[in-house]
Design a protein around this nucleic acid. Structure first.
Lengths: 341, 341
DNA sequence: TTGTATGCGTTATCAA
DNA sequence: TTGATAACGCATACAA
C-alpha cells in the first residue's frame, strides 16, 4: 500500500460531521443552504462548527461546484483615486453578498491586462470587471472562450464585450468645452493623459475636437499630453502660458492636473479665472475646496462600482440580457471658470 | 449507472497531454517545473498548450498541492491613498512573482477584519497582510490556528503576530511636536482620526502627549478627532480658531486634513505659518505643491508594500526567523511652519 | 430531510 | 525523465 498524502492539520467537514452526528453532506447543506436542513440538525452542526473552529475549504468547494465566489477586478492603477472609489463601490456591494475581490493593476497596458485576465481565469472567477473597452485580441479570445461574466467600466459604446457600466467620455468632454465657450473662453487648450490603448482619453480627445470644430474655435486649439500628478499640471500650465499664441482656458482631463495648475497660478500670480480659466474632470473632493474652487465634470465613480456589482450579481443569479448602463456625467461650474455674461 | 456530472467545456490538462503525446503529469511538470522535463517533451507540451489555449485550473492545482498563490490583503479603506500606495507596492512585487492579491476593506472595524480573515483563510492563501496591530481575539485565534504567514503593516511593536513592516507612529508624532516646538510654537493642538481599535492613531496620540509633557507645554494641549477629508480639516481649523484659548500650531495626523485647513486659512485670510503653523502626516504629493507647502512626516508608503511582499516571498521560500522591519519616517519641514531658529 | 456514491482537475507519491 | 495511481476536501446527483 502506498503512503497516504500528508493531510493538512486543518479541521475538515468530516470532523464537524462526526461531532454533530450527521454526514458530511448535511454539514455542507447546513452551511450553504440552511433552510434545506432541519432546525435541530442545523443547530447541532453550527455548534460543532463553533467548537472546532471549522473554516470550509473554498478551493475544494469551488472545484466541486464549479463556481468560485470571486470577482476579478482589473484597473489601470489603484493609485488614481477614481479607481479606488470604484473598487470601494464594488467591495461594498460584493463583500456582503459573499464574494471576494481579486485585484489586478494593468498599468494602462493591454498586454498586462491580458496576463491578468489569464491569471484570473485560472481561478475560475464568477465574473470579471475591466476598465475601458480597449483590449488585446488575446484578452477578447480568452474572455469569449471562458464564457465568464464581464463588465467593462468607465465607458459606453456600441460594441460591448458583454456588459458595460459607465458614461460617454466623448460627450462629457464635448459638453465641458461648450461650457467654457459659453463662459466666454475662445482659446481653449486640452491637457489629457496618454491615449495609447486608453479609450477614455481617446473619447475625451474626440469630444474636445468635435466641440472646437463645432464652435469654430479649432484654430486656437492646442492639445497636450501629461501624466497623472499635480506637478505635471503645473508643468503643462507653464508650457501653455509660454506659448506665443496665448490660450485663455485650459481643460484638464483630470482634477489632479487642474489643481496642480491652479496652485502653480497662485505661485506665479496668475489670476484664475480672469487670466486663465481652468477646468478639470472627475469632481474629486479637492475640486470643491480648492481656491478658487474647480469647474469640473462630475462622474459617478463610486456608483460605477456599485452598479457593476449589482449587474454581476443579477447575472450570476441567472438573469440574462442585462443592459449596458449609462450613468451619465454632470458639468459642475465653479469659480475657476469665468461667469457667463 | 448514475449520470455523470456535467463537465466544463474548458480545456483540461488531459487534452493537452493527449495532443502532446504525454501523460497529464508531464504537462503539469512542463508548466510548473520546466527543468525537470526533457527539452523536446517540453516543446511539445508548450505547443499543445498554445494550440488549445489551455489555462490551468488553479483551484484544482491548489487543492492538490495545498498551496494557493494568493495573498490576502486587508486594509481599512482603499479610498485613503496611503493604503493605495501600499497595495501598489504589494502588487508590483507579488504579481511578477506569480501571486494574486485578494483585497478586503475592514472599514477600520476589527470585527469586519475578522470576517475578512475567515473568508480569506477559506481560500488557503499563501499569506495575509493586515494593517496595524489591533485585532480581535477571533482574528488572532484564526491566524494562529491556520499557521499562515502574516505581516502586520504600518506599525512596529514588541508583540507581532508574526512579521511586521512599518514604523513607530508614536515616535513620528513625538518628533513632529518637537519640531514644532523648536520652530517656536508653544500652543500646539492635535487633530487625529478616531482611535477606537486604531493603533496607528493611538500611537500618534501617545507621541503627542509624551512630547507636550516632556516639553512642558501640556497645559496648552488640545486634542480633536476628525474624519478623513479636506472639509473635516477646515472644520477642525475653524473649531480650534474659535476657542478662547488660542493655539498657535496644529498638528494634523494626515495631510488631507492639513491641506483642508490650509485652504480654509486662505479663504479666511489667516496667514500660514505666521498666524498659525500647520503640520501634516504622510507626505502626499499635495504637501509639496500646496501653497504654502506643507510641513509633514514622510512615511515609506510604497516601500511598506514592497518590503512586505519581499518578506512574504522569502518566508514562502522557506526562510524562517524573519525580522520585523522598521522602515522609519522623516520629518519634512516646509513653508507651513516657521523656520527653526 | 438525510445519506451514498462519485467526480471536480490537478499534483504528490512512488515505481519504472 | 516519465508514468500509474491515489489523494486534495467538498458538492452534485440520485435514492431513500
Amino acid at each position: 500500500m502506498r503512503q497516504a498524502r500528508a493531510a493538512t492539520n486543518k479541521v475538515r467537514i468530516e470532523e464537524v460531521a462526526r461531532l454533530a452526528g450527521v454526514s458530511p453532506i448535511t454539514v455542507s447543506r447546513a452551511l450553504n443552504t440552511p433552510d434545506k436542513v432541519n432546525e435541530k440538525t442545523r443547530a447541532a452542526v453550527f455548534a460543532a462548527v463553533e467548537q472546532t473552529g471549522y473554516i470550509p475549504n473554498r478551493l475544494a468547494g469551488s472545484l466541486a461546484s464549479n463556481r468560485n465566489r470571486t470577482i476579478g477586478v482589473i484597473i489601470p492603477t489603484i493609485t488614481n483615486s477614481i479607481f479606488a472609489d470604484k473598487v470601494q463601490g464594488l467591495s461594498d456591494t460584493l463583500t456582503p453578498a459573499g464574494y471576494q475581490i481579486l485585484l489586478g493593476q494593468s498599468g494602462y497596458s493591454i498586454d498586462r491586462e491580458a496576463d491578468l485576465v489569464a491569471a484570473f481565469l485560472a481561478q475560475s472567477p464568477s465574473g470579471l470587471v475591466v476598465t475601458g473597452s480597449a483590449h488585446s485580441q488575446r484578452t477578447q479570445t480568452m474572455l469569449k472562450r471562458s464564457g465568464v461574466a464581464v463588465v467593462e467600466t468607465w465607458t459606453r459604446n456600441e460594441t460591448p464585450l458583454d456588459m458595460q457600466v459607465g458614461f460617454s467620455n466623448e460627450d462629457a468632454a464635448f459638453e465641458m468645452v461648450r461650457h467654457l465657450h459659453s463662459a466666454g473662453y475662445r482659446r481653449i487648450a486640452l491637457v489629457v493623459a496618454s491615449y495609447a490603448d486608453n479609450d477614455r482619453a481617446q473619447g475625451r480627445l474626440r469630444g474636445y475636437r468635435r466641440a472646437v470644430n463645432d464652435l469654430g474655435i479649432a484654430d486656437a486649439a492646442i492639445e497636450l499630453q501629461a501624466e497623472f500628478s499635480f506637478s505635471e499640471g503645473a508643468r503643462a500650465l507653464n508650457e501653455l502660458m509660454a506659448k506665443r499664441r496665448k490660450i485663455d482656458a485650459i481643460f484638464f482631463a483630470n482634477d489632479i492636473l487642474a489643481v496642480g495648475a491652479i496652485l502653480e497660478c497662485q505661485r506665479r500670480g496668475i489670476r484664475v479665472p480672469q487670466d486663465v480659466g481652468i477646468a478639470g474632470f472627475d469632481d474629486l473632493e479637492i475640486a470643491t475646496v480648492s481656491v478658487p474652487s474647480l469647474t469640473t465634470v462630475s462622474i459617478p465613480r463610486y456608483d460605477i462600482g456599485v452598479t457593476t456589482a449589482q449587474l454581476l450579481l443579477r447575472r450570476l443569479d441567472g438573469e440574462t440580457n442585462l443592459p449596458g448602463v449609462d450613468l451619465g456625467f454632470r458639468i459642475v461650474p465653479r469659480e475657476s471658470t469665468r461667469r457667463v455674461g
